[in-house]
């Protein structure tokens, strides 16, 4: 899940907490119309109605519990998978003559990683393709060695992206390169 996703999730959780807390506080102070501060939290009337509605009430609780558990499981899976939206599958190009060219997206990403790490200044590279195939968005992260000349590596990355665009006939719509540089001292 992305940072923005987490931020949205916790903003919603915060708003829910504020709404519930404010409502309970208002009910407790007698400021909520229709709520009696002297009443118990779980009134006998409510308990009677719950018992009358059995087994549907308990079944509804079971379904609600299952939905909560499913939401938790989905959230855990998303947490474990990391940022999503990676383009998987194939890029397909119609040719001038009958026929199509098909290329697997992860093969292309691997090829660009190999090209990028060809420079001795690049220790590691990670490439993610997202978006529609003819003009994908290209997200690159390069880890540079401490002694790498940043200007040279930058030019190398630019050339590698040009080669990628020429080979695949996919001009990236958006290019985003993040460089991490090792500290100069061990």
């Amino acid at each position: 899940m992305t940072n923005a996703g987490h931020r949205l999730l916790w903003t919603i959780v915060a708003l829910l907490l504020i709404a519930v807390g404010a409502a309970a506080l208002a009910a407790s102070l007698g400021a909520l119309p229709g709520a009696d501060p002297a009443a118990v939290l779980l009134s006998a009337d409510l308990v009677d109605r719950w018992r009358m509605a059995a087994p549907w009430s308990t079944l509804a609780a079971a379904v609600a519990g299952a939905l909560f558990a499913l939401a938790g499981q989905r959230l855990l899976v998303r947490e474990a998978r990391g940022p999503g939206g990676t383009l998987r599958g194939t890029l397909s190009h119609p040719g001038r003559r009958p026929g199509r060219t098909r290329l697997a997206a992860d093969v292309l990403a691997d090829a660009l990683v190999r090209d990028l790490t060809g420079n001795p200044g690049v220790r590691r590279a990670r490439v993610v393709l997202t978006g529609p195939p003819p003009h994908p968005d290209l997200w690159i992260r390069v880890d540079l060695t401490a002694d790498a000349p940043a200007a040279g590596v930058r030019e190398h990355v630019r050339a590698a992206v040009r080669r990628f665009a020429a080979t695949t006939d996919c001009q990236p719509a958006h290019l985003d390169v993040t460089a991490r540089i090792e500290p100069s001292r061990p």
Partner: peptide
């Protein structure tokens, strides 16, 4: 939160 939802939801169900 995800763990609490998963465990709490499963126990409630």
């Amino acid at each position: 939160l995800a763990s609490a939802l998963l465990i709490g939801g499963a126990m409630l169900a």
